[in-house]
């Protein structure tokens, strides 16, 4: 599904035809013949079996379900064509969930990028000693080490109407149950929880930029901002693109955090595609409609995955 024309070409360009002359093989050709030719397949077999049974089969099943009337609850489901897709796509809540997912994802990813970039540059600053940078780095990574359940329960406490956040802001707000604030609040929580992954990658990227690039720029009279724009950013570009795509994929699939903070409420203001799908399946037992929604999410993710894979291959 992800294979482009070039791969297909290289693939068919090396058929396992026997060599024309049966002379003893030399160099790389001999290397290949070490051991049994089926050997690599044996090494891959456990992975292949697991992926087939628990990845490919379920995907085929869920696509099948999406064209049936209610599966699982019904003994003999019938084929209904694209009826489910029409029903899901015209459902107002689906549209709301799609909009919320877009907002949540885009705001989170942009914030992750900006915080990750800012924090990684602070952590990479030569003005601060190595030891203190190491301490700060551990603190900065902390949010990423907690599971969604912990993050959810922690922020529910912090954002409680009587909680410490309201005390610090001298406000009296129901952050997670107010229809106008809940989406912003869960997005904020997700920003807090997710920036370290971006930051770690960017920090590694920053450490990999050769110092002489900066020296050359300084000799040319570049100031701090110009060095950032003309050296740092272009050098980090591949990492930024990879991480942005990965983060878009993961954030748009976020379920646990939403489920345990707001559950999609109040009145669907924080409903995401994932919570919408989960509710269809496990609260309403509409497994066919849930499958349809799940297939739509799969398609959206595959679009992002396509760009990610293409970008990774271009870098290799």
């Amino acid at each position: 599904m992800m294979i482009t024309t070039t791969t297909t070409l290289t693939e068919s360009a090396e058929p396992s035809a026997p060599p024309p002359t049966p002379t003893p093989m030399q160099g790389p050709a001999r290397r290949r013949r070490l051991g049994h030719p089926g050997e690599p397949y044996a090494f891959i077999a456990p992975t292949a079996v697991l992926m087939l049974v628990l990845m490919i089969v379920p995907i085929v099943l869920v696509i099948g379900y999406s064209f049936m009337d209610n599966v699982i609850t019904k003994k003999n489901p019938e084929f209904v064509g694209i009826e489910n897709f029409v029903e899901v796509l015209t459902d107002g809540v689906f549209a709301t969930a799609l909009g919320n997912t877009l907002f949540f994802t885009i705001v989170s990813v942009v914030a992750h990028l900006l915080l990750g970039l800012g924090f990684s540059m602070l952590l990479n600053s030569p003005l601060v000693s190595r030891a203190s940078r190491a301490v700060f780095r551990v603190i900065y990574i902390l949010p990423w080490l907690f599971t969604a359940a912990v993050i959810a329960v922690l922020w529910r406490m912090l954002l409680n109407p009587n909680g410490v956040v309201n005390y610090l802001l001298s406000s009296d707000v129901e952050w997670l149950s107010s229809p106008s604030l809940a989406l912003g609040a869960v997005t904020f929580i997700n920003i807090w929880a997710g920036y370290p992954f971006f930051m770690i990658s960017l920090l590694a990227g920053l450490q990999g930029i050769p110092a002489d690039l900066y020296e050359a720029a300084t000799v040319d009279g570049a100031n701090g901002w110009q060095r950032f724009r003309n050296v740092t950013l272009p050098q980090l570009r591949p990492i930024i693109i990879s991480m942005t795509l990965l983060d878009l994929i993961w954030t748009s699939q976020q379920f646990a955090l939403i489920w345990m903070t707001t559950g999609g409420g109040p009145i669907h203001v924080t409903e995401m595609l994932s919570t919408f799908t989960y509710k269809l399946a496990f609260s309403r037992y509409e497994f066919a409609l849930a499958s349809t929604s799940a297939v739509i999410i799969l398609l959206l993710s595959m679009v992002l995955a396509f760009f990610y894979v293409r970008h990774q291959r271009a870098r290799d």
Binding site: T47, P58, L61, V62, S274, A290, A305, Q312
Partner: peptide, 18 residues
Amino acid sequence: MIIVSVQAVPPITLLIPY
């Protein structure tokens, strides 16, 4: 290619058949 791209398969998509 399959191994790289299955990382993007949303868990919620697999949940119902699972």
